[in-house]
Write a protein that binds this DNA or RNA. Structure first.
Ligand SMILES: [Mn+2]
Ligand SMILES: [Mn+2]
Ligand SMILES: [Zn+2]
Ligand SMILES: [Zn+2]
Lengths: 138, 138
DNA sequence: TTATCGGACGATAATACTTATCATCTTTAA
DNA sequence: TTAAAGATGATAAGTATTATCGTCCGATAA
């Protein structure tokens, strides 16, 4: 409800606006790794006058304030990560399809917290490059 | 020498041209993950009339024919991977610096060859997200 | 509730990166 | 040597993203 989003904005130190709320709700309802254009298309249905620039600005704002996570690799454009579970990605080297794979299922659990040159680890992001089932047939 | 590059081209089924040879040699002498513009700047010193389009076209050609490997993630532009060793990357979440880290040093050796949905693994690419030593001080 | 002010909005220009086009030149293979 | 195929350089076009700016909205205090 609206009060929840108002609180979320307050928690993250950003102002609450109608466009932001619609954007947030639309994004919540999306799966996978939507592009700004895809988000824009859906927001426009509820707020026809919305500008693409506003969508870009607020996606960045959401990402910077930690509400959503960016996921730009392997796509030609910026994407937002809508899967909030700990997971990694399988990338088909032929058709470029990107599929989530859970941390457990991947069977990799890195533990080192500090690496060479004093690099402090926040998290690991694994891309498994290979062939999806569909592309193996062809 | 020239004969070597001629042979390399023959092996990969591409024509041997002066621009390609200079491009190849310049790239061989670069480290890290150079951008097309960086490569272009150096090639221009030896072949002043070279076009940026030619650099782009031949970088793609080299990547497609397996002479070099693409490494585009995390940068705003296409990059080429000049480190031919098996390695992964440490990405600083603050300054965006990208540093190579050897497979052994990372201490991760994934072995699964097949994952969910029948995905056939070719290789793993690990990005370690965190803070570089420099950014930890600030 | 209303006034005020800083931030957010929408329209659109500008930028950065990359690719397409095309006339000319070079390489390859016969 | 020659003809076909392919490569080059100049430049236009395309795509994604960001900057600019005048107007409007929303948070705060009177
Ligand atoms: Mn994902
Ligand atoms: Mn590298
Ligand atoms: Zn595929
Ligand atoms: Zn850093």
């Amino acid at each position: 409800m609206q009060a929840d989003f108002r609180q979320l904005c307050a928690d993250h130190g950003i102002a609450m606006t109608h466009q932001r709320q619609v954007l947030y709700e639309v994004m919540q309802g999306m799966e996978g790794h939507p592009s700004p254009e895809e988000v824009y298309a859906l927001v426009k249905k509820k707020v026809p006058a919305v500008s693409l620039a506003t969508v870009y600005k607020n996606i960045h704002l959401f990402v910077e304030s930690g509400i959503f996570r960016k996921m730009s690799m392997h796509h030609g454009s910026v994407r937002v990560e809508m899967n909030s579970e700990d997971h990694h990605h399988m990338v088909c080297s032929k058709c470029k399809a990107i599929t989530d794979i859970g941390e457990k299922e991947l069977g990799l659990s890195p533990t080192q917290r500090r690496l060479s040159d004093g690099f402090l680890v926040e998290r690991y992001s694994v891309d498994v490059i290979g062939l999806c089932a569909k592309c193996q047939k062809a």
